[in-house]
Amino acid sequence: MPLLRILLLAFPLIELASLILLGQAVGVGWTLFWVLFTGVLGLMLIQRQGWGMFQRLQQQMLANRNPGAVLKSGMWGVLAGALIAFPGLVSDVLAVPCLIMALRHRGGGSGPGAGSDEGPRTYRHGEYTIIEGEWQAGEPSREQDPSRLRDR
């Protein structure tokens, strides 16, 4: 835990050092342009990923499907946008794997239960909804379960 605290304290200093080195290499004007450009790009990415995730989440829930893959994709996209919006070069480099993960999870969630192993899968068969689940022999029945409220 102390290592995490030290890294959290050192991260802004590392970002500042990277911006100073970039400023020495390409000049102050281009460094300021880079900071402004990545800040706007990061905010646009957060906005786009947030609204896109919200719309896909609504579609998944209306279709009675598991929204796990949509949430994974949106989480990675918003994290990438936040890292890009944070001024510095190290955070921009860390945003690239997050973008790759967001694109990797983006295609998931199109079929029933696709792209996510969390939760039961549901299927429609005519007028019936079939929910996959697990059943174990020896579970108490309704009459034997002492924690169940009695029907009147």
Rank of each mutant, 00 (worst) to 15 (best):
Q144D: 12
P112T: 11
Q59K: 04
P140T: 15
A10V: 05
I100V: 06
D92K: 00
G133P: 09
S141R: 15
A95S: 14
F86H: 08
L99D: 00
L36G: 07
L89Q: 10
S141L: 14
P67T: 01
G52T: 07
I6R: 11
L32D: 01
L32F: 10
N64T: 11
S141A: 10
I100R: 00
Y128P: 08
R48L: 10
E127K: 13
F11G: 05
L9I: 08
Q136L: 14
G81E: 01
P12K: 13
L36R: 09
Y128E: 13
F33G: 08
W34N: 03
S110W: 14
E134W: 12
R56C: 03
V78C: 02
R152N: 04
F54H: 07
G111L: 14
V40F: 01
Q24C: 12
R121V: 15
L41G: 05
I100M: 01
F37R: 04
L9R: 15
L103F: 13
A63S: 11
H125Q: 13
V40Y: 01
G50Y: 06
I6D: 08
S91Q: 08
R121P: 05
E134F: 11
V93I: 15
A17N: 04
G107A: 14
V78N: 00
P146G: 11
Q60G: 15
S147T: 12
G29R: 04
G88H: 07
G68T: 15
E15Q: 11
G52W: 02
G88N: 08
E143W: 13
Q49F: 06
W51I: 07
